[in-house]
Write a protein that binds this DNA or RNA. Structure first.
Lengths: 226, 226
DNA sequence: CCCGTTCGTCACAAAGTTGTCACTGGTTTG
DNA sequence: CAAACCAGTGACAACTTTGTGACGAACGGG
């Protein structure tokens, strides 16, 4: 189930949202101020962020902008909580980059509906990401090209697809079976060790860029953006 | 800045899009139904059209087809708004000629990103470019002429079309199937190896200029400008 | 109506890719 | 502390994919 980061300085509000999210089966991470929010967003890479506009020190708008600037977090949908209806226009304006908003005080039911809506929306469109950049690694899907440290790296079709799928699902572990389904489009016809071999070849070719490819022992592989 | 035509029968949606576009510095023209959309598209020749699929009277698909039929508007990129995810395939089908889509309800941020993406693609590819130059290779589409190293090279009709399409989509890999669709305008009637043969003939004729024609093993062919 | 050009198909060889396997060394588990 | 487990590695043979030469059908201009 999806992981959600809740950012609000009022403990009561956090608790209310957290309770509702957990009841609905979501995994929840919380933060009470802007700095903590940024740190946790980068560390846990949630699927969605619920962000209060009014925060001590670094305010919600600033957090929003910073999240958008970092490629690791730029794609995460943000749902703003705001007390002032008048702020709405600015919140939804491009410069700020929120995806939706709920005005305080909110009804938990409405909040849940909006969260689910955003997640559904994203899952249909996320696969369209065409060009991704992680540090010195640039992956251009339509051009079918990969650059590491400014140098062009040639990948075979299978290697490219494997890397693309891992990168699109960055932060989340993919089991060997899952990868076989999605990259090879077979159903258990192929040995799962095949995945290992291809990961090895990818790592060889990526050189220093191989640091993005994590092995999760007993589970599978994961692409890390950091 | 670019001019954008927004077509939707719901005033709220129009207003939301219009606000965001204007905040981002775009010029906006609006229309509430198909007939008005066609009239304004022809009159103001926008750089991009945001078109709702569900419109009263003449529906979005019909508007799309009509816009494509008229040479004055045929080249304008169209971004479809659709409520049904199931419609997507038909919308993006070549027959309908939409360039991208966003499902309703949409997040303004995503819509903006897609609009900017489409505009960027247009301006860099500039598919309307009638005369392209890549190093010592000059391709003049209306004159139907190709010059390599200052020397005129004669191409057959098919060869010319193949080269033109590849050059217009430079940087992006085109699969054999895609090329058959766009160059030959057939649907799977022809052997895909035909593409290979024509690429060979192109390479022979281009001589040194053949360095622009990349083979991407397992995927297709790509034109590189460098 | 004939001849040269163009075009799609085919078969074959060369080149590149891919799945498998056995082995190794490290890590977890009972 | 040994057995079981698991991921990394090198090698390799089978398989795909692409380039190439050749051929006959279709076309169009003279």
């Amino acid at each position: 189930m999806a992981k959600i980061l809740v950012v609000d300085d009022e403990p009561d509000a956090v608790e209310l949202i957290e309770f509702n999210l957990k009841s609905a089966g979501f995994e929840v991470v919380t933060a009470a101020d802007g700095a903590e929010a940024l740190k946790k967003a980068r560390a846990s890479l949630p699927d969605l962020i619920v962000l209060d506009l009014m925060l001590p020190e670094v305010d919600g708008l600033e957090v929003c902008k910073l999240l958008r600037r970092d490629t690791a977090t730029a794609g995460i949908p943000i749902l703003m909580l705001t007390a002032k209806a008048a702020e709405i226009d600015r919140v939804l304006g491009l410069e700020l980059g929120a995806d939706d908003y709920v005005t305080k005080p909110f009804s938990p039911r409405e909040l849940m509906l909006r969260i689910k809506g955003l997640l559904r929306r994203r899952s249909t469109t996320e696969s369209k990401a065409e060009r991704m950049q992680f540090g010195d690694l640039i992956l251009d899907v339509p051009a079918h090209s990969l650059t590491v440290n400014g140098k062009r790296v040639e990948l075979t079709a299978t290697e490219f697809k494997l890397l693309t799928i891992l990168a699109q699902r960055r932060g989340r572990v993919q089991s060997r079976d899952q990868l076989l389904k999605d990259v090879w489009e077979y159903d258990n016809v192929i040995d799962t060790r095949t995945v290992d071999t291809h990961m090895r070849r990818l790592r060889e070719k990526l050189g220093k860029g191989a640091k993005h490819l994590d092995t999760v022992r007993g589970v599978g592989y994961r692409f890390v953006a950091g």
